[in-house]
Every structure is written in structure tokens, then in C-alpha cells.
């Protein structure tokens, strides 16, 4: 336990040391989305002001996913890169699976911070276009919790598979498609005209994240039933953590 806390402290220390960079990395994307889609476009009449409502749960989900993945995949693929910086932590007197768990906790933490930033940003920039009805705070927190974990688990999986110099490629080929094809900027039910796409994207955890947030923030917009989004997120956390753990262990030993 002491070792686990020490590993966390190491990561937090490094994160705080690059605080401006961290905040920029985490806040820029939600800021731009909130600003452009929630303020600029409605102001110039390109989209209806109600689009802000539709968008917010998606922005929340996408920001958390981005932060969780970046917070785990990038450090991990560097740790396992040519230098193997992580070796000293692998030599700590703790099970290797606990080192993975520590990484997931760190990623989740970063996803929460990103999620936490979306609300004040939205309030500051597009509150006039927004009408949120939080149906249940306990469910909102459950979703925040699950989406944080799912994003970190996604990052662990990617971080152990991808070599450091392929990170830009990973964003282009995996993260960006996940976000764009994740019912982020449109509700899943709106895809009923493109059934094949509607079906395929059900493998994307982003769908459950965005739809889940819709169900607690903007219940007026048609969304996937809570039970299914919760189950979907649970499944994503378990499956991706499992794959990530196996990938990590495979890399940790030779």
C-alpha cells in the first residue's frame, strides 16, 4: 500500500511540475468545442442555440476520454520505450498488476479533472444557450466515475500496444475516430437512417459515455437507456483493463 501511494505521488509530482502544460492539454479541447459550437456557431446563426444542449454531454465525454487516454497512453509508451524508465518502478516491492492499477487511477484522475473543467467552461461561455436538467446527481457521479475509468483503461490498452514514435498515428487512427464516431456530436438515435453505422459504433465506449451523460444532463433528448449505457461502460472498463493488464505484463517481462 505504501508503495502504491508512493507511485501515485511520483506521478502527481511530475504532473504538477508541468501544470501549465497539463492544464493547456486538458482544457484546450473542451474550451474550443464549447466556444465554437456553443457560442460562435449559435451566435452567427449557423446552428440552433439548442445545439449547445445536445453537444454538452458529448463534449464532456470526449474531453474525459481524451484526458484519460493522454494521461495514461503517452507516459506508458514512453516508459516502455527505448529507455525503459519504468524499470525502477517495476523493481518496487509491489505486484506488477498494482503498477497497472496505479496508472489507471492516474488516468482516471486526469479524466475527472478534464470533466470538471467542462462545467465551468460551459457555464462561462454558453450558459445562455444551455438548459441542463440533472436528473440525478448520484447517476451523474456514477457516469463520471465509469467514464473516467473507461478512458484510463483505453489509454492503458493503447499505451502498451503502441510504440512511442507511433503516438501521433494512434491519435489519428484510433482516438479521433473514436470521438467522431462516438455519438459525441449527434445523439445515437439520430443515426437510425444509417443503421450499419449505428450498429458498428456500439463497440465504441464513447457511445455509452456520451449517451450516458445525455441521460443525466439532457434527458429531453432521445438517448440509449441508462441500464445499457451503464452496462456498456462497465464492460468497457473490464475488457479494456483486462487487455491493458495483459499487454502491460507482457511488456514488463521478457
Amino acid at each position: 500500500m505504501k508503495t502504491f501511494v508512493a507511485l501515485l505521488q511520483r506521478d502527481v509530482t511530475v504532473l504538477i511540475r508541468d501544470l501549465p502544460e497539463f492544464v493547456m492539454r486538458i482544457a484546450m479541447q473542451p474550451f474550443l468545442f464549447v466556444f465554437v459550437f456553443g457560442y460562435v456557431l449559435p451566435s452567427i446563426g449557423q446552428v440552433k442555440s439548442s445545439y449547445a444542449n445536445l453537444l454538452l454531454p458529448g463534449i464532456l465525454a470526449a474531453s474525459m476520454m481524451m484526458a484519460g487516454v493522454q494521461g495514461t497512453a503517452i507516459p506508458l509508451s514512453q516508459d516502455f520505450g527505448a529507455i525503459k524508465e519504468i524499470e525502477d518502478r517495476l523493481m518496487a516491492p509491489i505486484r506488477i498488476s498494482m503498477v497497472v492499477l496505479e496508472k489507471i487511477v492516474m488516468g482516471t484522475l486526469q479524466a475527472w479533472i478534464a470533466g470538471g473543467l467542462v462545467f465551468p467552461l460551459a457555464w462561462a461561455i454558453m450558459r445562455s444557450n444551455l438548459s441542463l436538467h440533472v436528473t440525478s446527481f448520484s447517476y451523474l457521479f456514477l457516469y463520471l466515475f465509469l467514464v473516467g475509468l473507461a478512458s484510463a483503461a483505453t489509454g492503458i490498452t493503447l499505451g502498451t500496444i503502441i510504440s512511442p514514435f507511433k503516438i501521433p498515428l494512434m491519435f489519428a487512427t484510433i482516438i479521433i475516430p473514436m470521438i467522431f464516431l462516438g455519438a459525441t456530436y449527434y445523439p445515437w438515435h439520430a443515426l437510425s437512417n444509417v443503421v450499419w453505422l449505428q450498429t458498428i459504433i456500439l463497440i465504441n465506449p464513447m457511445v455509452y459515455a456520451a449517451e450516458g451523460f445525455r441521460s443525466v444532463l439532457t434527458p429531453g433528448i432521445p438517448h440509449i437507456r441508462m441500464l445499457f449505457t451503464i452496462l456498456g461502460l462497465f464492460a468497457a472498463v473490464i475488457i479494456l483493463s483486462g487487455i491493458g493488464l495483459r499487454g502491460f505484463i507482457k511488456r514488463a517481462y521478457s
Partner: peptide, 14 residues
């Protein structure tokens, strides 16, 4: 135990 590896694996963030 403790190991000093063949290759520099110091923590560069520290």
C-alpha cells in the same frame, strides 16, 4: 535486491 542495469533507466522526469 537492487539492480543497476546495463542501460541508463533513471527517471528523467525527476
Amino acid at each position: 535486491i537492487a539492480v543497476v542495469p546495463q542501460q541508463n533507466n533513471l527517471d528523467r522526469s525527476l
